[in-house]
C-alpha cells in the first residue's frame, strides 16, 4: 500500500531523514523509534505530503505522491497529530465529521450519510456514547480515540500517528493500543512513532529504527531491535528487554544500562 524508497529530507543544510526505506501493507503495524530530534516527525510529515522531500520516492498503491492531489491523499492516508488543545470547544460529533472534509465538495455541509459514518466510526471504537461530549473535556486517551474516529471517516486505509501515546497514562495507552489492534485486524495499516514500550506485538509487526544521523533500519521487531542496533541508533548504552506474559503475548521495552 505504501512504499517509501531512499527518502531524504530535512531543514536547510540539516538532513534529518537520510535514505530511509520502508513498506507498509494491509494489516501492518509499524513502530517508528528513535531518539528525540532524529527525524521521526519529519519522516511522517513527508509521507503525508505536508513537507517536501529532497529526494527518494513515496508511493501509495503504486502511485507517486507527486501525482496525488490533496483530496486524493486524504482518501489514501490519514494523519493523527499529537495531543493538542483545539482553538474552539467543538463536541465530538463535530470533530469527527470533519474527517469527511476530503470527500465533500467545497460548498457542502455534511449530510445524513456523513453523520452515519461518524456513528459507525465511533461505534467501531466503542466511544459512541461520547458523541455529544465536549472534545476538550475528554481524557487524553479518549481524545486520541476521537481523532482516530475522525481519521476513519476519511476512509483511508493507512493511518499515520505522531507519538499518539505521549503523556497518556497506562489506562489511556491501553485504550488507544486496543483500538489500533482492532483496526489492524480489519486490514488498516498503522504507522506510529513512539517512545514507550511495545506491548503485545505480533510477528508481522515491523519497526523502523532511526538514528541520529537520519539513517534507519527497517524490519521485524526481533530482527531490528538488537542491542547493537539500538545502541547505535540512540548513541547510548541501551538494552532491549523482551518479555512474554502468561498468555503468550510478547512485549519489549528499551532500558538504558548506564543509570
Amino acid at each position: 500500500m505504501l512504499n517509501v524508497t531512499s527518502l531524504c529530507g530535512g531543514y536547510y543544510k540539516n538532513i534529518v531523514v537520510n535514505e530511509v526505506s520502508l513498506q507498509a501493507n494491509e494489516g501492518d503495524m509499524i513502530y517508528v523509534l528513535g531518539a528525540n530530534g532524529c527525524g521521526k516527525t519529519t519522516l511522517l510529515n513527508m509521507i503525508i505530503g505536508y513537507k517536501k522531500r529532497e529526494s527518494g520516492s513515496i508511493e501509495f498503491d503504486g502511485i507517486n505522491i507527486d501525482e496525488l492531489s490533496v483530496k486524493q491523499m486524504a482518501k489514501l492516508v490519514s494523519y493523527i497529530p499529537q495531543q493538542h488543545v483545539p482553538a474552539y470547544n467543538y463536541n465530538v460529533r463535530d470533530v469527527v465529521v470533519m474527517g469527511r472534509a476530503g470527500s465533500l465538495p467545497i460548498y457542502a455541509a455534511p449530510k445524513d450519510k456523513d453523520f452515519a459514518l461518524v456513528n459507525e466510526s465511533l461505534d467501531m471504537l466503542g466511544i459512541a456514547h461520547f458523541i455529544d461530549a465536549q472534545y476538550s473535556e475528554l481524557s487524553g486517551g479518549e481524545r486520541q480515540l476521537v481523532l482516530i474516529a475522525r481519521a476513519l471517516c476519511q476512509q483511508a486505509k493507512i493511518i499515520i500517528m505522531d507519538e499518539p501515546l505521549q503523556s497518556l497514562d497506562f489506562v489511556n495507552q491501553a485504550m488507544v493500543l486496543r483500538a489500533l489492534k482492532l483496526l489492524i485486524k480489519k486490514g488498516y495499516s498503522v504507522m506510529m512513532s513512539t517512545h514507550t514500550a511495545i506491548s503485545n506485538y505480533a510477528d508481522t509487526d515491523k519497526v523502523l529504527l532511526m538514528s541520529r544521523k537520519g539513517s534507519a533500519v527497517f524490519g521485524s521487531i526481533e530482527d531490528i531491535l538488537t542491542r547493537e542496533n539500538i545502541e547505535r541508533a540512540y548513541g547510548t548504552p541501551l538494552q532491549a528487554i523482551f518479555s512474554i506474559d502468561e498468555r503468550g503475548g510478547k512485549h519489549i521495552i528499551c532500558m538504558p544500562t548506564n543509570v
Binding site: P81, A87, D94, M98, A101, I106, Q154
Partner: peptide, 27 residues
C-alpha cells in the same frame, strides 16, 4: 454561506486540515 462548514476545518492546524483533504491556502 458557501464555506460555512469548511470554516470549521480551517480552525485546525494547517497540517491537520491538509491531511483531511482541505486546500487550506485556497479555502
Amino acid at each position: 454561506f458557501v464555506m460555512r462548514w469548511r470554516i470549521n476545518v480551517l480552525t485546525l492546524d494547517d497540517i491537520e486540515s491538509k491531511s483531511l483533504g482541505v486546500n487550506t491556502k485556497r479555502d
